[in-house]
């Protein structure tokens, strides 16, 4: 599905990615973890083509992503911070994105799922953080693409919406889709993900299942396993 080879990226003097090699197979939920500033978002944005790597190649579904924006038809992306044009209404934004990508009717079901009907005629600038995130989720999930990338999907969600999101992710997984998630909520990651990819200082430190990580670090639970990696490398 996604193949990354020897990916390097510098922002000025700050070397964020230092040779990332990663291959993600078809189907399943993969969590990309790492401390703040480890390069998770940069890695994801490189796959999306929003950040242009200094070195290395990225293949999505066997095709090199350079100079070919059409591969993004295969990706649904949920950005980390929901920044929308504030003078647009929710309804208008959804209609515009549909117009730009393709026609779908999934949005109605998702609006119903996240109870967004009362907000459809409100301007995006007047919405609360959690409501914006729900709009963000609708925009992401309304296209039926084989690869879904979620950057901090739980931000600002209330418990009911969080449960709905988890269900939604499982439904998409059952369709055989590949889902990439970054999150700082360890319990969420442990609950939903099949495999984790741990990034540390711009390199892949660990890739495998959660039980493999527990054995490797000799820790009884996931949260402590992650903490022990961080402690070892900063001590």
């Amino acid at each position: 599905m996604v193949n990354i080879e020897n990916l390097h990226k510098k922002f000025g003097k700050n070397e964020v990615l230092k040779g990332v090699d990663l291959s993600i197979k078809d189907g399943g939920i993969f969590a990309v973890l790492g401390p703040n500033g480890s390069g998770k978002t940069t890695l994801i944005k490189s796959v999306l083509g929003m950040v242009i790597p200094d070195q290395g190649t990225i293949n999505v579904q066997g095709k090199n992503i350079k100079k070919n924006p059409n591969y993004r038809h295969q990706i649904d992306y949920l950005p980390q911070i929901a920044n929308f044009p504030s003078n647009l209404k929710v309804k208008e934004l959804i209609r515009m994105i549909k117009d730009l990508r393709k026609i779908t009717n999934e949005d109605e079901r998702l609006i119903e799922l996240f109870k967004l009907q009362p907000f459809l005629d409100k301007k995006l600038g007047n919405l609360s953080g959690g409501t914006k995130q729900k709009v963000n989720l609708v925009l992401t999930f309304m296209f039926d693409s084989p690869l879904i990338i979620l950057d901090e999907p739980t931000t600002g969600l209330d418990p009911i919406s969080l449960i709905r999101l988890k269900e939604l992710i499982q439904v998409e997984k059952a369709k055989g889709k590949t889902i990439l998630i970054t999150s700082h909520i360890m319990s969420f990651v442990e609950e939903v993900s099949d495999e984790i990819v741990f990034i540390l200082e711009g390199k892949i430190y660990f890739k495998g299942t959660i039980s493999e990580l527990k054995t490797k670090t000799n820790q009884p639970d996931f949260e402590h396993a992650i903490a022990s990696i961080l402690l070892e490398n900063h001590a």
Partner: peptide, 16 residues
């Protein structure tokens, strides 16, 4: 002012 709009568009399958 349209930075947000631009970022939203960049994630869509559109040419830069």
């Amino acid at each position: 002012n349209s930075k947000e709009f631009t970022e939203l568009l960049l994630a869509q399958p559109l040419k830069r």
